[in-house]
């Protein structure tokens, strides 16, 4: 299988603060899902925005089907954005409060003139049906919709241009559990019907488990573990992945050893501002940290069929 999207050494920042430190990602031709796991502030949303060129890259490369995304001209970028779409985190803010559902979903069709004016209404109704909504919603405005309906309208709008790749940024985190389930089913259905490739950004391991073939775990803007989703979630090796895994509430099932629990929140800004290259960024929270972890920055290496950035990966295996 060939690559749909390849990200190499991507560095991103706000002003002078670098928040993403050289991330590699790979999405194969669909149907294929790449999960991106991380807590708030890990840079996952910014990566998603950078893929759509909504956020400038400091360094690195993004390649879509062999084309360099970062050097695209206006015209090329417009064509690229027809094939790659972003589904926003919060369906509420992603819809213009002054636009009806009909005009919102018809907007990309009108901009790119992919569908003749007279046929747009039918096309919009078909898109709504595809995400499981009735055409009675066409005249409604965002504030008249429920959270789940809004999220599905956002998905329908992203599908209007028949993209090959979707960036799904926390598609379910703002929704009730029952509504989440329906949106997840929708994504499952769409990936098969439309052969979609997608980057699924989430902090919800259950969502990642269900919808992605492979995944990366981000910690403070760097990949700490990468591999097949099944492997990572059943036998997490990096202490951070293990901690995330242990933080998932389960019903009557045993938990991994308590040494891997997250005991405190993410570090404060002061430690974020520490110069990179001064040891492992997770060392302060890590139950396995040794002297070397604070002096040498671990790099990604292959251990047990995955890539992991941890000096003590082998020790984790035996835990």
């Amino acid at each position: 299988m060939s690559d749909l999207l390849t990200v190499r050494g991507l560095r991103l920042g706000f002003g002078k603060t670098e928040v993403v430190h050289g991330v590699d990602l790979q999405v194969l031709e669909g149907p294929y899902g790449l999960g991106v796991i991380g807590e708030s502030g890990s840079g996952k949303t910014t990566i998603g925005r950078a893929v759509l060129r909504l956020h400038p890259a400091l360094d690195g490369s993004i390649t879509y089907r062999g084309c360099d995304v970062l050097t695209m001209t206006r015209v090329e970028l417009s064509a690229y954005r027809r094939e790659v779409q972003l589904v926003f985190q919060d369906g509420d803010g992603a819809l213009d409060p002054r636009m009806s559902v009909q005009s919102a979903i018809a907007e990309p069709l009108a901009i790119h003139r992919t569908v003749a004016r007279g046929e747009r209404r039918d096309r919009v109704a078909a898109l709504l049906a595809e995400v499981g909504l009735g055409s009675d919603l066409l005249a409604r405005y965002p504030h008249e919709l429920s959270g789940g309906e809004r999220q599905r309208v956002v998905i329908a709008r992203a599908l209007a241009l028949e993209p090959k790749l979707l960036v799904l940024d926390e598609p379910t985190s703002a929704l009730d559990v029952t509504v989440q389930e329906r949106v997840l089913q929708l994504i499952e259905r769409l990936r098969e019907h439309r052969s979609l490739g997608y980057i699924l950004i989430s902090h919800n391991l259950a969502v990642i488990d269900r919808l992605s073939e492979s995944c990366v775990v981000l910690y403070q803007g760097a990949v700490v573990e990468r591999g097949r989703t099944r492997d990572l979630l059943t036998t997490p090796l990096h202490p951070y992945t293990r901690a995330l895994r242990a933080a998932v509430p389960e019903l009557g099932v045993g938990r991994p050893p308590s040494t891997s629990r997250l005991t405190d929140g993410p570090p404060q800004t002061s430690s974020l501002l520490q110069p990179a290259g001064q040891g492992c960024s997770y060392a302060d929270r890590c139950p396995l940290a040794v002297k070397m972890c604070r002096s040498q920055t671990p790099v990604l290496r292959e251990v047990a069929g995955r890539e992991i950035a941890c000096h003590r990966a082998e020790d984790s295996l035996s835990l």
Binding site: R49, L52, L54, S78, R81, R82, Q85, L86, F88, Q89, D90, D92, G93, A94, L95, D96, P97, E107, P108, I111, H112, V154, R157, A160, L161
Partner: peptide
């Protein structure tokens, strides 16, 4: 978000 959304939509 909807301003970014509009940009992405072209």
């Amino acid at each position: 978000g909807y301003a970014d959304a509009a940009i992405v939509l072209g």
